[in-house]
Amino acid sequence: MQTNTLYNSSATQPDNCINIQSSIASDDCHTVGNTSVKNPRMNCRNVDVFYADKQAINQVTLDIGRNEVIAMIGPSGCGKSTFLRCLNRMNDTIDSCRISGEILLDGQNIYDKRQDVVPLRAQVGMVFQKPNPFPKSIYENVAYGPRIHGLTSTKSDLDIIVESSLNRAGLWDEVKDRLNQPGTGLSGGQQQRLCIARTIAVGPEVILMDEPCSALDPIATAKIEELIDELHEEYTIVIVTHSMQQAARVSQRTAYFHLGNLIEVGETNQIFSNPRHKLTEDYITGRFG
């Protein structure tokens, strides 16, 4: 399959790159499992990512289905977060980062020169590891996105969006009486749900979550997981997690990354009960990491 360089934010040329495949036996580089789905929201084809001369992602091909939760797992440095950030061009902010291959959202190439990243990041929202509310009121945290994207013209419309977003994030009942208080005054779990409400408020199609519960206690984690379960009826969710139990609980499909390669992808139940690749099995059974 022909690979086109679609985005190059650095002057580094491909021939300077290290081939990370040398670290893994050749048969290990072929992804095990079905990388395609019937009704994809996103299609990733032969995606390579380089940070300067270091290759972080190697020829990853993967479809992301509509209304599915897909979990990305793998040891530290395997490229799962790098791959996640490719899905809404968050890597554009890194000067040395260069991406080749093809990533489509609803059939449209997100790395097309005409693609404006601002609406893209509204369509493909992101929730980070550490809750990062704006230093503004709870109301403003949610209202900011719809306002700058011009989604509403009246205050009452904005109120409706704020309330419905906070409702869908399972936070409305806890904050409805203190919408003017700072978002940073909420607990960690509430802040993370506020960030999810902020993401939802601009009407995304896909929500990317990069270890969204790693800074939260078990109860706050359970609330986020419950929220993910509810949200996937409306949105496609891609979650990077270090917790294999969390991946098993929240996702329908799981993708295992190792040294920049997509080693295996499959139904979550299959991956955690009967993985087909030895690297996947060794990782999920705690034989390396």
Binding site: P75, G77, C78, H258, L259, T285, G286, R287, F288
Partner: peptide, 14 residues
Amino acid sequence: MNEMTEGHTVKRFD
């Protein structure tokens, strides 16, 4: 990082 081990990383598990 990512070192393969003979058994589990946590030996007590083995």
